[in-house]
Amino acid sequence: MEICVCVKRVPMVGGAIMVTPDGLEVDTTMSGFTVSPHEECAVEEAVQVAERLGGSVTVLTLGPPEAAGQLRDMLALGASRGILLQTDGAEWGPMATADAIAEAVGGGSVTYDLLLFGNEAADTGGYQVPVRVAHLLGLPCVTGIKGLEVVPAGDRPERILASREYRGTEEVFDLPLPAVVSVKEGINLPRYPSLPGRLRAKRATIETIEPSWEPDGLRKERLRVPAGAGKKAQVLGAGTEAVPALVSLLDELGMLS
């Protein structure tokens, strides 16, 4: 089973998110970088499938040269090949990103059995790159998946059963392979990288491609922190002494009737 997982380098945000003075980017001078959480689970899922059924896992990203660091993080989890679609760091739109990924994984003749993505990037939240890649490659696609089962026919993987919960009902999709699937956190609990894994990742060669692109119709003008951020809570008290005030508040809110 040959699996390619697409990941994205995003800032690691903790308690607050800051915008650069020009209002166009997240200020990352004080933060590190990671991959979107859904994507870490996609890599874990791919590695588990490859461990179970054989085959190998490729990780692919589109981003600046520094995004090779995120590929190495994923190689340390058990992926064996890393591909960087290198950019100058400008934010690509989803259509251009999908074009570059589809081209890199083989255009019309995909050599992978399964292309895995995270459901949406943590930063831009565009929800569409996997679907656009699937259309460019002529493959079936489903998104938001929290359960994956590969169904073999003989010694070949033939189909997958992909499931998710939607509005209290479980939806199960039966897709022929090759296919494109995006997953959500919760599908598994990603492992910590092992020491041998890290050493292997450090030495691994990252294949680099420099695709070209054009902007699509959605143009970012400005980023801002939502109004209301940075307000201060009214402190009801300290420890158990605050309980009467807390009970009064719950009563006022109509929670105790």
Partner: peptide, 19 residues
């Protein structure tokens, strides 16, 4: 002209969609 969420709403984007 659009106002859309980034980071699931922790950040707001003002954008123009030409289509």
């Amino acid at each position: 002209r659009l106002v859309r969420q980034r980071w699931a709403g922790s950040l707001i984007e003002d954008a123009v969609l030409a289509a």
